[in-house]
Design a binder for these strands. Structure first.
Length: 593
RNA sequence: GUCCCCAUCGUCUAGAGGCCUAGGACACCAGCCUUUCACGUUGGUAACACGGGUUCGAAUCCCGUUGGGGACGCCA
């Protein structure tokens, strides 16, 4: 590990205190965990959202939920009190969820608002607590859209609180982790503009530390060696299947003398997990969730080859990195219960958890390659702007009233976990495209130019001449108004870059009737003597149309086709002006012929 | 199968017991603007999954049903 010390991010590794000063954090962390508060039986509500389930009024109506002295106290506090600012916001550190989980702090029968406030605010340690978040992808593929959103939310949360946002690559699966995937993730995040603090942490580099922790647990009698063979495990699985219950290791080596170990079998190390009781975890998005401990078996910490398993690695890393808020996909939600077991066995402070609902494809099913499960590079290639993608992803699950267009600065200022919704969302290209069109229009031409130039050159097959480049630059503004993606922008700009009349597309070709061609020839003649300023060009064409007794549109549309090869383009006088006298007249005559 | 989570227009969402005749945005339809397209603008179609309960009052709280999703590895 020593040789990787340079990779260590800012917060001190291998230091059991959270950053922000040990005094403050230890005070903060010294509070009882929800699950370790014996007399506190947390009610569960199944249907409602986090916000709903956390209202006191709801709880008052369910007295059958055990002794709950804390609950009693809570129920005496009017709902209106719980809606007051300190419960809801305050830097995300004080909220009703937390309140409901610390009955000890709230055990004030007949507590009034003042008392309630007094007793719950101390959740916040003296002085600001530094938020540390992390994005921890496993490099087994590209950075997909769900991962991008997770990264964004972690980034926003840290930035909002002036905290730290770290990047950790979970590459402990040596078979499936690839360098290419790591690069794709790093590139994707960079492109999205989600810069992380410190160096990237590679989880595999810390394997020795993870194993060390497992051995410590072993020494403390909180873990044990298990010699069950794969065959035995398979039998348990079979048995479980037959009895239609989930596979759970039966703990046969939990209390058995290791002397009985079969010779030649390399053991795994398992955690001695609590076998009865239940545990409640307060999730900042999902709310309070309780699981019976008998649902969980003794998880493997170390494989028989001595390498750590993910479940151990995350906990050790999150702890060592001083992570205060674990914000990740809801697919990790049930893992949380196992991880909390570990935190408690180690006597480590448990971070806050926020599980983001998954993103589904447009059909409501899992994201597949067909829809959203593309790498972010695919979105870049489709011509989406990072700012647009960020805005879109932000609104997928998080809201701020009726606001839709939210700049990143605004998002940093506003972002919170309270307004992350608990229900899964579907990916909608149409909305992303609409947002992208907005951001495209807002982006200065000068910034757009380098983004489209290479593609335009590819389209016309070579570097642009100075005149062509100048036309593209001048045409940018007009074309971007009617483009939704960079790809469309490139397509719309290409006619400026070419020399000679562009081949008309099918719809455009239909415009060039015999009459239209005659009109074109005449128009060319009418333009010949004109000055090449836009208003003069307009005047010339309008009077030409008038003289010939046709409507402006009847002349404009053939002109458009002749000049651009398309029926869709910026205003025709603008096109004329930008193309210049020589090029315009040449295209007109070519089309008229 | 077991456990866990979720449920408001087609989609993203607002909604914190009375401000709801359920609001906004995208998409869609129609009108206006107009040299095309787009922008803009005006209007329209469109939702509280279902059933019980609590309450004077429920989209909102509780229970159930249904539907969707997730987790159940010496993967991460």
């Amino acid at each position: 590990m020593a040789d990787h010390a340079s990779r260590t991010p800012r917060p001190t590794m291998a230091t059991p205190t959270h950053c922000g000063g040990s005094t403050g954090s230890s005070k903060y962390r010294a509070m009882p965990l929800p699950s370790s508060t014996g007399n506190h039986k947390t009610q569960r509500s199944r249907s409602a959202s986090r916000r709903r389930r956390m209202t006191a009024s709801a709880r008052a109506g369910s007295p059958a939920t055990g002794p709950g002295d804390g609950d009693a106290a809570i129920s005496t506090i009017p709902t209106t009190v719980l809606k007051q600012p300190p419960w809801r916001h305050a830097g995300g550190l004080t909220d009703r969820a937390r309140f409901l989980c610390y009955p000890a702090l709230c055990d004030q029968s007949g507590a009034d608002m003042a008392q309630a406030t007094m007793f719950c605010v101390p959740r916040q340690p003296p002085g600001p607590m530094t938020v540390v978040t992390r994005f921890a992808p496993s490099p087994t593929g590209f950075l997909h859209i769900g991962g991008a959103r997770t990264a964004l939310f972690n980034w926003l949360y840290a930035r909002h609180h002036g905290g730290t946002y770290l990047l950790r690559i979970e590459d402990t699966d040596r078979q499936r982790s690839t360098k290419a995937a790591i690069d794709a993730i790093v590139d994707g995040l960079s492109w999205l503009g989600l810069d992380w603090d410190g160096d990237v942490v590679h989880q595999f580099d810390r394997a020795a530390r993870h194993a060390e922790i497992a051995h410590q647990l072993l020494a403390e009698g909180k873990a044990y060696r298990c010699y069950a063979s794969p065959e035995e495990l398979e039998q348990m699985r079979e048995q479980a299947r037959r009895e239609s219950r989930p596979m759970r290791y039966d703990g046969r080596w939990r209390d058995r003398d290791p002397k009985e170990a079969p010779p030649g079998v390399k053991p795994v190390v398992r955690l001695k997990a609590p076998q009865s009781g239940e545990r409640t975890i307060v999730d900042r998005v999902l709310g309070s969730v309780t699981l019976q401990n008998n649902q969980l078996d003794d998880m493997v910490l170390l494989r028989s080859d001595g390498t750590p398993v993910y479940m151990l690695s995350v906990v050790v890393d999150d702890h060592d990195m001083g992570i205060t808020h674990v914000i990740r996909g809801a697919d990790h939600h049930t893992n949380t219960f196992r991880q909390v077991q570990l935190y408690e066995a180690l006597g480590w402070p448990v971070p806050e958890f926020a599980h983001l609902p998954l993103i589904h494809g447009p059909d409501g099913a899992k994201l597949s390659k067909r829809h959203g499960a593309l790498g972010v590079d695919a979105y870049r290639d489709m011509g989406f702007l990072p700012a647009a993608l960020r805005n879109y992803l932000l609104r997928l699950g998080w809201s701020h009233g009726d606001d839709e267009i939210i700049s990143t600065e605004q998002a940093v200022a506003w972002f919170d976990l309270e307004h992350v919704g608990p229900s899964p969302a579907r990916f909608d290209f149409a909305k992303l495209t609409n947002l992208n069109a907005h951001y495209l229009r807002e982006t200065p031409d000068a910034e757009l130019l380098p983004l489209v130039l290479p593609a335009i050159e590819a389209a016309v097959g070579g570097a642009l001449s100075d005149t062509a480049r100048d036309r593209v630059t001048r045409g940018m503004s007009g074309v971007k108004q009617r483009s939704r993606t960079l790809v469309e922008l490139v397509a719309g700009l290409a006619f400026y870059a070419r020399t000679g009349a562009p081949a008309p597309d099918e719809k455009a070709a239909a415009i060039l009737t015999k009459d239209a061609k005659a009109l074109l020839a005449g128009a060319a003649g009418a333009l010949e003597p004109a000055s090449w300023a836009e208003p003069d060009l307009e005047a010339a064409i309008k009077s030409y149309a008038e003289r010939n007794g046709v409507k402006l549109g009847q002349v404009a549309q053939p002109l458009r086709v002749a000049l651009t090869g398309s029926t869709v383009s910026p205003g025709i006088f603008e096109v004329l002006a930008i193309l210049g006298r020589e090029e315009s007249l040449s295209r007109l005559r070519q089309a008229a012929a």
